[in-house]
Simulated assay, not measured.
Amino acid sequence: MDGRGMPAPGELYTIDGRQMHLQRSGPVPASALQPTLVIEAGGGCASPIYARLQQVLSAKYPVISYDRAGMGWSEADDAPFDGKRSAQQLHALLAAAEVTGPIVLIGHSLGGLLNRIYTGLYPEQVAGVVMLDASHPEQFELFKGLPAEQLAPERKKRAEFQAGGVPPPDFAPIQAIFADMPHVLRQMAANYTPETIDTMVKEHEGLQHVARQAGASPDLGARPLAVLSATVMQKLPPGAEEAAEVQRRWPEYQEAHAGLSTRSRLHRIEGAEHMTLVVLPPFVSRVAEEIDWIMAQLGCTR
């Protein structure tokens, strides 16, 4: 699984003076009207996490995943994390990759907020939206960010790994989940870096700002919208009252997402956790079914 130092597996484009990375798969759009699916990652996640989802979806549709600044193979920048700037960079990246037709945005976790911002900025381009256990603006009202010192041990562990150390225990479940996709394991090893932790801290510091941007974005109108929600919540340590309140309100948040469009449907996926929803085959298959529904609503069937 050793992918340390591996080159970018996809395509690199210069956006705002820095390299940004995307991975493209699936058939070429059959016409200028066929949407391309664009996966927006959750906070602190790089494109390889969504490799199984991309593989399944690309059996029918053109699909793109990409890395935000500082994640995966996209170069970091010095600016604070900002949803509008992120959307502008993605828009420029898609243009550079000659994705000129409509898109369907697939946002996991934080990606759901970013998709709302993107749609508000480029409404003519976004044909449909999928929210995968997506974050809600209100959950970050009391959020204080993630102190860098809290992640110092994780940063040290990743630095030791990149210097030639053995894979940490964290990789055991990842190896099990992606045992049939060794190329993905190599990509994940390549992304297990201390610099990724720096980007995670930056994204956490900007969450309240990005949440306000998403909350101020317009509703999704009549765009087809599929909302999929996990039902298994993470076990919390004592004293995590704020997180417990977010978990209590999670079903309410997902219903609010569904209310953003006049053409939506909401499914609570039994047995799915926040991350397993996008990586385990049975749940990925359910996501694919919802994509089929979105595409049928748009008059695109294969």
Rank of each mutant, 00 (worst) to 15 (best):
Y50T: 08
L266V: 12
P27Q: 04
F178C: 02
L260M: 09
R212P: 01
I117A: 00
R24D: 05
V232G: 01
A214F: 06
I49G: 01
Q254R: 02
R52L: 14
L298E: 01
R4G: 00
K60M: 07
P102Y: 12
I15R: 03
L225K: 01
M233E: 09
P281C: 08
E98P: 10
R302F: 14
P48W: 15
M233F: 15
A190R: 03
M200Q: 06
P182F: 14
Q88S: 12
Y192K: 00
L280I: 06
I269K: 01
R18G: 04
D16A: 10
L280D: 03
S229N: 02
D82L: 12
D77P: 11
G206L: 07
A30H: 14
A211R: 03
A69S: 10
V104F: 09
A243G: 02
G10Q: 04
W250T: 01
S109G: 08
A46G: 12
M200W: 12
E273F: 09
I103P: 01
G165N: 11
P62W: 13
T119F: 11
P29M: 14
L236I: 14
A214Y: 04
A79N: 13
R286H: 10
M233L: 11
I294N: 00
H209M: 04
Q19D: 07
A79V: 15
Y192Q: 00
D67W: 11
K235P: 11
Q139E: 13
G145M: 07
L114M: 13
T119E: 05
M6Y: 06
G145R: 05
Y122Q: 01
Y66L: 01
G43F: 11
A41I: 12
K156E: 11
M1Q: 02
Q125Y: 08
G206D: 03
A288V: 15
Q213H: 03
